[in-house]
């Protein structure tokens, strides 16, 4: 039977090929769930890294972040107040009486309709003018 020292010496002398040969020995039964346990261990290590990253924020930096957040919040509130005070009075956008609302809507549509009709009339009038260049070109070609 080998002593520990002899064993250590023998292992130290194993080359890469010998290590591979031992690793490929299918005669050794691998415990069930080994791969899962390794994954779980590594996941715990990964979680520890994440937790560590959060914990490594220095107190000075934490204080700076708090001051910055408080300043930004105060600036936002101030800006909101300024905007609120400077807001111009806008037109009323609702009606209490549905009949009035309907009348206003009808009036708006009539206005739009009138403008569309006017636009369509102008386009109709302009149509013959648009054909003028073709007529001129046609005359030149015929001559």
């Amino acid at each position: 039977m080998k002593t520990i020292e002899e064993k250590i010496h023998a292992i130290q002398n194993l080359d890469d090929a010998a290590l591979e040969q031992l690793a490929d020995d299918a005669g050794v039964a691998v415990p069930t769930g080994l791969g899962d346990r390794i994954r779980e261990n590594l996941a715990a290590a990964a979680l520890a890294e994440t937790a560590g990253a959060v914990k490594t924020v220095s107190p000075q930096r934490r204080m700076f972040r708090r001051i910055l957040a408080a300043s930004l919040s105060a600036a936002a509130v101030l800006a909101g107040l300024v905007l609120l005070l400077q807001r111009p009075a806008g037109p009323e956008d609702t009606f209490d009486d549905p009949a009035l609302a309907y009348a206003s809507l009808q009036q708006t549509f009539e206005y739009i309709s009138e403008k569309v009709r006017f636009g369509a009339g102008m386009a109709e009038e302009a149509l013959p003018l648009g054909e003028r260049p073709f007529e001129i070109l046609k005359n030149i070609n015929e001559k």
Partner: peptide
């Protein structure tokens, strides 16, 4: 991760202990 079985086999050969082999891996 796919190397785990081979690593275990080597560790087992060297240490002749299942528990220690898994610890090492």
């Amino acid at each position: 991760l796919p190397l785990s079985d081979g690593l275990y086999r080597l560790a087992y050969h060297l240490l002749e202990s299942e528990a220690e082999a898994e610890d090492v891996v």
